[in-house]
Design a protein around this nucleic acid. Structure first.
Length: 459
DNA sequence: AGTAAGACTTGGAAGAATCTTC
DNA sequence: GAAGATTCTTCCAAGTCTTACT
């Protein structure tokens, strides 16, 4: 591989885009200006209204200022980033409004970078890298009430990066004038490059795309041996769990933590002793997959049309998501898009009524004239009516699906917990095109399953 | 046995691309 | 054809599990 692709260097603002302190324009040092733009870009984000975010940002920003700047800039409230903010908003819109050819050109440039840095050779095969770019500098966006939100995330330099590649491969060249922190050849790990980020002091990695050999299959292909053991395991375990619970409770007061001695480490250790490869996660995957299979069996009706079958599929998928507790907040746009859909349904109903009337008229016409032309007209109207009926049905199914899905996130279980062969088999068995349930990325990731599973596959 | 560091996976949000609708 | 909605993709923080260490 060629090592990571580094975030582009900072481009100073044009002279007419000014920063104001205490109402007066102030020219900032390039490094200071760069950090200011990180904040300016986020001005209409909720983050910048939070005190912790503001304080962390201001603290880190001042650290990077020249001593003169630091002497002057003492209060965030007196900083005016609005002009900078507007500059970036405008720039963004200008980019969106670019003519087709220009956009095409930009895309080609991006593709070239992807082509050059986005792949590596693994065991003689060309594999796609998942994240081949270093994370750009910016302000840390911790979730919830993260105490470090707003802190400066520093620019990653080649000197921060450890390269991992095989001994017989060509070592990637660092950008000119730079060198790598280290080059090593460790074939016991999967990462290609790594660096330590400055906020939490944790390590970030460049790794392969989910479609690559390294990422695929390990869980699902090795698992069957584990899974057929899980069934009898469950059967005996719940008796024992009950007894153990009683034991746990005997020596405890009602307020005590029941599981003070049971943490995931202990649990995993125990499971590991029972069988190699058995961890708590395997149970979650097993439960998810077996549930999907059962639900699909129970819900799918072979006589249904594709739309109705898809509703059944989504319902089975939802049962899994509920089991895994993949809940989400109802999307902000939910009400509105539901109303839109309802309006569509109403419009379709009117169309339907209209089509019924027209068919009636055409039939009457045929009765009166009994000629070839009006017979053809009747047929045509019949066809139209059927088409509209089908469309209406589809819309209704869509509405049901949407409503049932509003507080449930399907993505994670679909991507990480469900054996794709179950879905592939289902598609083949019921004649549903695979594109209806997996988009392009998902099809890439599950290519192995699409190839191998036939309609009789059982988990 | 407990803890910290390292490796790898997961989850959800933001941004980009595409589709719809007027 | 542009504005808005929807879907896809990328990004990256945070979670889980493993390994190393004391």
């Amino acid at each position: 591989h060629k090592g990571p692709y580094f975030a582009p260097l900072y481009e100073p603002l044009p002279d007419d885009v000014k920063f104001y302190y205490d109402g007066k324009p102030m020219k900032l040092n390039v490094a200071t200006e760069e950090i200011a733009t990180f904040y300016a870009k986020m001005l209409d984000h909720e983050y910048t209204t939070k005190e912790i975010f503001q304080n962390n940002f201001f603290h880190d920003w001042r650290k990077e200022m020249t001593s003169e700047e630091r002497k002057k800039i003492k209060h965030l409230e007196k900083c005016d980033f609005k002009e900078m903010h507007k500059y970036f908003v405008d720039k963004n819109e200008a980019r969106k409004a670019l003519p087709k050819e220009e956009k095409q050109k930009l895309k080609e440039e991006a593709d070239k970078i992807q082509e050059e840095y986005g792949y590596c050779i693994l065991d003689g095969h060309r594999e796609k890298i998942g994240n081949f770019k270093t994370e750009p500098p910016g302000l840390f966006r911790g979730r919830g009430d993260h105490p470090k939100m707003g802190m400066l995330k520093k620019r990653i330099m080649p000197e921060d990066v450890i390269i991992n590649c095989s001994k017989d491969s060509k070592t990637p060249e660092p950008p000119s004038g730079h060198k790598w922190k280290e080059v090593r050849c460790d074939n016991t790990v999967t990462w290609l490059a790594s660096w330590t980020e400055n906020i939490q002091n944790s390590i970030k990695y460049i790794m392969l795309n989910p479609s690559s050999k390294l990422k695929v299959g390990v869980l699902f292909l090795v698992r069957p041996s584990v899974c057929h053991l899980i069934d009898p395991f469950y059967a005996t375990v719940h008796v024992r769990v009950f007894k153990n619970l009683q034991l746990f409770m005997e020596n405890k007061d009602p307020g005590d933590d029941l599981f003070d001695r049971l943490n995931t480490t202990v649990l995993n250790k125990h499971l590991q002793d029972l069988m190699d490869g058995l961890t708590a996660k395997v149970f979650r995957t097993y439960n998810a997959s077996i549930t999907l299979q059962e639900q699909l069996k129970a819900l799918t009706n072979a006589e249904d049309n594709v739309a109705a079958k898809l509703l059944s599929y989504n319902r089975a998928n939802r049962a899994v998501a509920i089991l895994c507790n993949h809940q989400r907040a109802t999307p902000k746009s939910f009400e509105k898009s539901m109303q839109n859909l309802q309006a569509k349904i109403d419009a379709k109903k009117e169309q339907l009524a209209e089509a019924q009337m027209e068919l009636k008229r055409a039939k009457a016409d045929l009765k009166a004239k009994k000629d070839v032309k009006s017979k053809a007209a009747v047929e045509k109207k019949k066809k139209l009516l059927e088409k509209i009926q089908e469309q209406l049905l589809k819309l209704n199914v869509q509405a049901t699906d949407k409503e049932e899905n509003k507080q449930i996130a399907l993505g994670t279980s679909k991507l990480n917990y469900l054996d794709p062969r179950i879905s592939v088999a289902w598609c083949k068995k019921f004649g549903v095109p695979i594109e209806k349930i997996y988009n392009k990325t998902q099809r890439e990731k599950f290519a192995w399953a699409i190839d191998m599973a036939d309609e009789d596959f059982e988990f």
